[in-house]
Computed example of a mutant assay.
Amino acid sequence: MSPQQNRGKLSLFSGSIPMSQKQRHHLLKGISWKSQGTIKYLLFLSFLVISVTNPYPASAHKVEVAGDVGGTLHIEPNDNPRAGEPSQVWFAVTRRGGKVIPLAQCNCRLAVYAEPYATGEPALLEPRLEAVAAERYQGIPGTEIIFPKPGIYELQLNGKPVSGERFKPFKFKFEVTVAGGSTQNTQIQRDVNGDLVEGESQKLPIWAIALSIFGFIGILVVVLRNMRGGGE
Rank of each mutant, 00 (worst) to 15 (best):
S2L: 06
Q187I: 02
F47L: 11
S32E: 11
K99A: 15
A66E: 10
G37S: 14
V69R: 05
D68S: 14
Q21M: 11
N54Y: 10
K34D: 11
S59W: 04
G199Q: 03
P116T: 03
L27F: 11
L28D: 07
L42W: 13
P77F: 12
I219E: 10
I17A: 08
D68Y: 07
N6T: 09
G98A: 08
T177D: 06
E130T: 06
A118F: 06
K99Q: 15
P55D: 03
Y117S: 05
S201G: 11
V52S: 02
Q88M: 12
I188W: 05
V63M: 07
M1G: 15
N226F: 12
G142Y: 09
I209Q: 10
K40Q: 14
L43G: 05
F91G: 03
P57L: 10
Y113D: 01
K34G: 07
K149E: 00
A208V: 11
A92M: 09
W90T: 03
G215M: 09
K34W: 06
K168T: 15
L220Q: 12
L27M: 09
P127S: 03
R82W: 02
A179R: 01
G67Q: 11
R136G: 07
L27Y: 11
C106H: 04
N78I: 06
L220T: 15
G84T: 05
K40A: 12
F167P: 13
L157K: 01
Q4E: 15
S35D: 12
